[in-house]
């Protein structure tokens, strides 16, 4: 009996001990965690190995850069809740602001790196079925009878917020009815949405893999990726006449890097995004590089279209746009209120 009671105790002890040991184990040294949003998966996978090489060449130290992906809001929440991110690379400044508000990132984060801390940009385009059977060329065409639209939920997806804002900006600026017209345009538009996924990736899958909808409102890079991934024989990309310049920002999470002693490598990681190699890689993954040379090298890959930004007076920056449109009881809730 002694032996078996001993072994029982050992089992119990090791189970508890294992839990404690694991609890105490923070992320290992020589690692860097980049908490990012959905459509950057392929880009950061390649960039992480590029950076590891650069860092090894420069300092002689090995570094393993990990990435975590998900809806931008969910990722920001995880960082706020204690996910040990060294850097965040999210879909919109609002999400990084939310982290900064809780004291994890210094308030001046957006001034610390060039171009509002967004090393690459993107825009919102239409992905349509091959040959564009519904002849969708610009925003008003979306309301044609029988057109069904796939876009994720603006409440949870950063990309969806850009979609929404692009449509809003078009309606305010290019149709003649001002905000009232924008409201009714978006109400009509969301009536035609059969699936409102929580993230940009889910929406793309619904459109591409499940055959939902006639048009997917998507990040430019996401549209190109789907195009490359699933065959150019199935889809076409349509650039609307007018869209929004999406500026996905990046920041070092000050409190985490100071505690973990990773500030140097984290800052180097973000700066590497601005180097010619980083910019070329961004362009390769269909993000619009900031660097003129890289942009020129990309040639006709990024058509120039008329674009507005979030700082346009009709939006007045992320904080205001978020409160007006996406907070509970905001424009989006009113637009969605009637249900079906």
């Amino acid at each position: 009996m002694t032996l078996s009671s001993l072994s029982r105790r050992a089992v119990l002890g090791s189970a508890l001990g294992g839990g404690v040991a694991l609890a105490a184990r923070a992320q290992g040294a020589g690692q860097l965690l980049n908490v990012s949003y959905d459509p950057t998966r392929e880009f950061y996978r390649e960039f992480n190995s590029l950076f590891a090489e650069q860092w090894k060449a420069k300092t002689g130290q090995g570094i393993r850069a990990n990435a975590s992906h998900g809806g931008s809001g969910r990722q920001a929440r995880a960082v706020i809740d204690g996910l040990q991110a060294d850097v965040v690379t999210l879909a919109l400044a609002y999400d990084i602001d939310a982290i900064a508000e809780r004291g994890l990132i210094n308030a001046d984060w957006q001034q610390r790196l060039p171009h509002n801390s967004s090393p690459y940009t993107s825009t919102i385009v239409f992905l349509v079925r091959k040959g564009n059977p519904k002849k969708l060329a610009d925003w008003p065409d979306l309301l044609k009878p029988g057109v069904s639209i796939v876009t994720p939920n603006p409440k949870t997806s950063g990309g969806a917020r850009w979609n929404y804002l692009a449509a809003w900006a078009w309606a305010v600026k290019k149709s003649s009815g001002g905000e009232q017209a924008a409201r009714s345009f978006l109400t009509e538009m969301f009536r035609k949405v059969p699936v409102l996924d929580t993230g940009a990736r889910g929406a793309t899958t619904s459109f591409v893999q499940r055959g939902q909808g006639d048009v997917l409102l998507a990040w430019e890079n996401e549209a190109h990726l789907a195009f490359a991934e699933f065959g150019a024989d199935q889809f076409d990309i349509v650039y609307p006449g007018f869209s929004i310049l999406a500026e996905p920002p990046v920041a070092v999470v000050d409190r985490n890097v100071d505690r973990r002693g990773t500030r140097a490598v984290a800052e180097a990681y973000l700066q590497a995004l601005y180097t010619p190699e980083g910019q070329a890689l961004a362009a390769k993954h269909f993000y619009r590089p900031r660097d003129e040379a890289a942009l020129a090298a990309a040639g006709s890959r990024f058509p120039r279209i008329e674009m507005t930004t979030i700082d346009d007076p009709i939006f007045g920056g992320w904080k205001k746009a978020q409160a007006t449109h996406f907070d509970d009881g905001g424009e989006f809730d009113r637009i969605y209120q009637p249900g079906r």
Binding site: L22, A26, D81
Partner: peptide, 17 residues
Amino acid sequence: FGPWLQAHDVQIVFAVP
């Protein structure tokens, strides 16, 4: 228990525990 855990550098959520 978040603040206490952070002060003692123990990671529970977003980790194996």
